[in-house]
Design a protein around this nucleic acid. Structure first.
Lengths: 353, 353
DNA sequence: ATGAAAGCGCTAACAC
DNA sequence: GTGTTAGCGCTTTCAT
């Protein structure tokens, strides 16, 4: 580690340390000749100021902590990029932490970030438990929630309207002519991505007089593999389904893979719609119809909001809702083969992974 | 921000600040009654020490900087998880930065991380240019390269044997009976993932007396969309191909999508093998045959190595090579339809994205 | 315009 | 065992 200090520079330039400090912070305030000498000394010594010392004085780190529940989920790629762009704009660095949804790590990271004196915290997707809230409160660090929200604790947040988005996804299926629609839902109780998306699904069904379908639900927790397995169960119970609403694009891929392995064509026999519009959804065969979230903008807006918070500016709104939109690609279409015409589904657990 | 200091605690507990400091750093060295009083005061005041002050003394941040070229690439998910696990083990936090391969951001981040006094730097996948090296050298921060290496500057690194891995991928294709094999290669000059993988491809071809195929190459830079477009060019030039080696799984998906849109079946008519074994490769249809890199282990090993460097311990080896392995799934098979039997390929640029 | 000195919050000698 | 004190590297009064 390069350990030349301001003292070394002062000595070499034959000035006092305050002069050196001045050329770094208010260059105009120092005589041109001395300024040049100092600059030269800085160059020669490759001097770079110590962030700890500055932090101690300014009581600011210009760093924001970011808690990501699952860094493997492509959903966060663009969220992070949006955050980074905003951070750059406002002069912050990001400290990105992956919690793998482990409460211990969440708490550990919050405490660590607070010790590192981050100026603020971005908390993504996870549900804010009492433990998390208490840890955050204690730390005294401003927080904004990203793709999650908290009714109990009134924390600022940025996200889409999950219920409405899910509603529109299922509306799309209904408009296509589907009558028997299943859902692969995030394991309840998940008050963020689970419950609201289920409600949107149920609302669309009711509105279309299809409430009989409302129990065509099966659960999975975030992973392709689970969605794959859940799909077997779903079609075992409700073989009449002609469409399924998968609560994430990854789920949708799981559903499609399962169906494919059972010889069922998507979308000819069964339509599948996803949620998120991660890059993957354009890379699969068939390309996924899905609900697009503006991930980049969500990340950007999260940092903007936090920036205001950090500077004690007032927030126009506590909970920001950003627009989603339906994207129709290839995985949805009108109902084709009916349940009866379909090849019987093999419900044995698949063991190919 | 919670701003109670060690002084406040000392006052409330009616002891000196050194006693407070002691209960935090060497609790046994202080009398039980006082210790309890201090602990109670800490609890009451929700005191948490200031990392800047401690950093100033210890000259350590217990933080490692991580430079990721493209956070959207799923390849880095497990790399980061491996790093994080090791970091936790060794008592570091990770500061993850996404550079999007922008030299300005790379340099900016290195300087910023240095000011933040990170104890070390993990530099992933990118080629170490003279500018980067100079920036790193100036900063004086120990570095290890992850999934990249540097012959010029002799920087420690952890990665697979790209050339050999590519060789084995193509060997697999040859063993299956393929004679006309194309490659979708990273844009040259890419001395890390481009050139060595091409050499592996070429070596396998030569060894099998297939050197005629060696020019069946087309280039793309990291993205699905580019691989898709490159595939059109590849088959336009060499319609006799029955197999292609894609230099990444993302490329492989691009190749497969393109082929699929042209009505060509994988693997029945054309075999495709990828590289990396990202999670995606198990989620696609067909599931990808690929070369698996141990991403998690690479990340873990990178941090371990850096940890040694930070503590000035000697390294057994400068450049670590970790094992790869061939995974055969569904996207490769024996050559089926010959070029002639195949539907003519539509070489117009696809505009579906 | 410039230097001397105080002090940010903490740890680590060094007394006692 | 515990308190006093001298810094860690820097910015910022305050004199001059």
């Amino acid at each position: 580690m390069n350990s030349t200090t301001i003292r070394d520079v002062a000595r070499l330039a034959k000035v006092s340390i305050s002069t050196v400090s001045r050329v770094m912070n208010m260059p105009e305030a120092v005589a041109p000749d001395k300024r040049e000498r100092v600059l030269e000394a800085i160059r020669r010594l490759e001097y770079q100021p110590n962030g700890f010392a500055r932090g101690l004085i300014f009581k600011k780190s210009n760093t924001l902590g970011v808690l990501i529940p699952d860094i493997r989920n492509p959903y966060y790629g663009d969220i992070i990029r949006g955050m980074e762009e905003a951070a750059k704009q406002f002069g912050y660095s990001l400290m990105i932490c992956n919690t793998d949804r482990d409460p211990e790590r969440v708490v550990g990271y919050i405490e660590d970030l607070r010790e590192k004196q981050v100026d603020g915290l971005l908390f993504a997707s996870d549900y804010v438990t009492a433990l998390y809230y208490e840890t955050i409160r204690k730390s005294g660090v401003p927080v904004v929630l990203v793709s999650t929200e908290s009714r109990e604790y009134g924390i600022p947040s940025v996200k889409v309207d999950e219920e409405q988005a899910a509603y529109e996804a299922v509306r799309h299926l209904i408009a296509l002519g589907h009558r028997e629609i299943g859902i692969v839902c995030f394991t309840l109780p998940d008050p963020i991505s689970g419950e609201p998306r289920y409600r949107g699904y149920a609302r669309a069904l009711e509105e279309a007089g299809l409430e009989g379908s409302k129990n065509h639900v099966v659960y999975a927790t975030h992973w392709f593999e689970e969605a794959y397995a859940a799909t077997d169960v779903l079609f075992q119970r409700y073989p009449q389904l002609t469409a399924v609403f998968a609560c994430s694009d990854e789920f949708a891929l799981g559903v499609i893979s399962c169906l494919h392995d059972r010889g069922i064509k998507v979308p000819d026999q069964v339509s599948v719609i996803g949620f998120d519009n991660v890059r993957l959804s354009r890379m699969s065969i068939p390309r996924l119809s899905t609900i697009a979230q503006p991930m980049y903008e969500i990340g950007y807006a999260g940092v903007s909001k936090l920036h205001r918070l950090v500077r004690n500016e007032s927030l126009e709104t506590l909970r920001d809702i950003v627009p989603h939109r339906l994207i129709v690609r290839e995985s949805t279409g009108p109902p084709g083969g009916s349940g009866e015409n379909r090849k019987t589904i093999d419900i044995r657990t698949n063991d190919s992974f």
